[in-house]
Design a protein around this nucleic acid. Structure first.
Lengths: 349, 349
DNA sequence: ATGAAAGCGCTAACAG
DNA sequence: CTGTTAGCGCTTTCAT
């Protein structure tokens, strides 16, 4: 880190003025003689001066850095969220300190502690579990740490939060399956750890509500119980295959995300069922790939990049406005992208 | 940032000792009376003391933070690299300051400047362009900034670098196509900006070499020239469709990555060509999805997470060992994953 | 075994 | 218009 070329003091000495004057010249603040300013600026660039932001941070008690903790990065979802956060952070001259919890609540705590020790100005986090770290978040709240949750929240805690309206998404997906005449619709989720996340729970609730509206009270869930194996496609493939091999029936699949849908479709096919003729399937996320597989996947699109942007914007607002302002819950609307995996529209793409 | 509860001075006063003693107790350094130590530790946790890492950084001239700049995060590739970096960073108590260049060389410079101002201890970067920022990197080199490049390098500059052996990957892919009897093999790349990257150039070179070995000197490249439109699937779809619509022929496709392969396959199908019966295609990256689409995609797998890990490890080594040690170029071996899109093995997965 | 004091590089209040 | 001084919270040298 010792590579910086010169500090303000060096410049001051070189020009023959005081450090304060250099400061004024560099920040164009307060009265300063244009000539002096020029000389200073010239020498500064001559010496390749660059401000030491850690010194500044220490002095002004603010780092212009936000901490971002997510479950993992390999999925379509968080990648996009991250870009959204990055965009607004860059636009506001903020840095982003990133770390993954990989789904472990205790790691999440460690990471956050570390970020706090590094004195980030605020935090954006996708909590690994809705319950495990409840007390921890209560403490953060008490400490007035600016924080906004994304994708998942901690029920009952007044923390700002931005996500897709997952319940609505699940409802829309299921309604669509119902509309194309399906009645034996199963919900395929992913690993059991993920299953507890409020986002997944929301999708399931939407699914349940839609079924209930049609007087179907039995919900069938595939996934939990199986060993947690990534990749998601494989997990789903196993879940659906297992269900089918027991002689159980289904004519519709609501997959918790597109990757899961791919795995489900493959399992159906391998079992001799045609999609969409025999079974309709709808996914969640609208990955780019979903428009190009066969059959093109009907899926619930959520505005991921916007979640990231909105979360960052909200956090910056919190950081600047401070403790005031009540909790904000931003729920972004999902929308259904109809393709061919449900048979609703066998042409088009 | 003012939310910290107590500093060393507060503790010192509370216990009735000096700041230095508190320091010794907290770090368990030097001689200190066990009793005093206990008392200090107790009061510290009582007060919820947390070290101020920015103060420490200023003092010791080291931030325990690395800067990471990538092109974008929405692809399979960088997501995985990032997790690799994150893993070893966490294991070594380092933080990761992340930012995306989105492919713009000037943004890349700005970002790096900002990271340097924040005094990161080192940088990991996937340079947007092999030429545009050449001088800039020469300066960084002169300034002795610890830096390792990933995925793409700047030809001629002695900067540490870790990536897949892309030339070999391209060669393996093309050899395979040749082996299954294909002779009219086209290379489908993506946007023209990306096309300049050394990783893509490498794949192309491997493709060319394999063809040359079979006395095929004509290479055909699809992609460059078309408007740069994301998503990649769509770009590839257009490129292949356009080629086909001109009445030109092909019996093999080497796609620069799996997403491009999906788009290509779809274009072939829509044109009435069967994969793998009429045309063989091989991709690059081995995304999880590739094993589940139809036909399962034959593709060149690269060890992405390892690239991230290795890059981080190499950087930390540089940071600690300093200027010594010659440039290191780490090329990780790719391997071919044979599925069914080439027809070499119509069973299995 | 403990303490005093200096200083990392910057900002900001106060004086002139 | 410019300079002096103090201090952010920590580490480290030198005394005691």
């Amino acid at each position: 880190m010792n590579r910086s070329r010169a500090d303000m003091d060096t410049i001051a000495r070189a020009v023959g003025v005081s450090k304060t004057t250099v400061y004024r010249a560099l920040h164009n603040k307060g009265r300063i003689h244009p000539q002096t300013r020029e000389r200073i600026l010239h020498v500064a660039s001559e010496l390749g001066y660059r401000p030491n932001l850690v010194a500044r941070s220490l002095r002004i008690q603010k780092t212009s850095t936000v901490g971002l903790v997510v479950i993992g990065l390999t999925g379509w979802f968080y990648s996009h969220i991250l870009e959204g956060v990055d965009e607004v952070a860059q636009a506001n001259q903020y840095g982003v300190l990133l770390a993954c919890s990989y789904g472990y609540p205790e790691k999440e705590r460690e990471i956050i502690q570390m970020l706090l020790d590094k004195r980030v100005d605020g935090l954006i986090v996708a909590p690994a579990d809705p319950e495990e770290n409840r007390e921890f978040y209560e403490e953060l709240l008490a400490l007035q740490v600016p924080i906004v949750l994304i994708d998942r929240y901690i029920p009952g805690l007044p923390i700002d939060f931005v996500a897709t309206n997952n319940e609505l998404g699940g409802y829309m997906a299921t309604r669509h399956l119902l509309k194309v005449g399906r009645r034996q619709i199963v919900f395929v989720s992913n690993g059991s750890r993920e299953r507890r996340a409020t986002s997944v729970v929301g999708r399931f609730e939407g699914y349940r509500r839609a079924l209930a509206e049609c007087d179907i009270c039995q919900t069938v869930e595939l996934g939990p119980g199986l060993p947690d194996i990534l990749p998601e496609e494989e997990y789903a493939y196993n879940a659906v295959s297992h269900y089918l091999s027991q002689g159980k029936e289904l004519d519709g699949v609501f997959a918790v995300n597109d990757d899961v849908a791919y795995g489900a479709i493959r399992a159906l096919r391998d079992y001799g069922l045609r999609v969409p003729e025999d079974v309709s399937v709808v996914g969640f996320d609208n990955q780019d790939t979903s428009a190009f597989i066969l059959p093109p996947l009907t899926t619930v699109a959520q505005p991921m990049r916007e979640i990231g942007q909105k979360a960052a914007a909200l956090l910056l607002e919190r950081i600047h406005k401070g403790r005031s302002a009540p909790q904000q819950q931003v729920l972004l609307a999902p929308h259904l992208v109809i393709r061919q995996s449900c048979g609703a529209r066998l042409n088009g793409s």
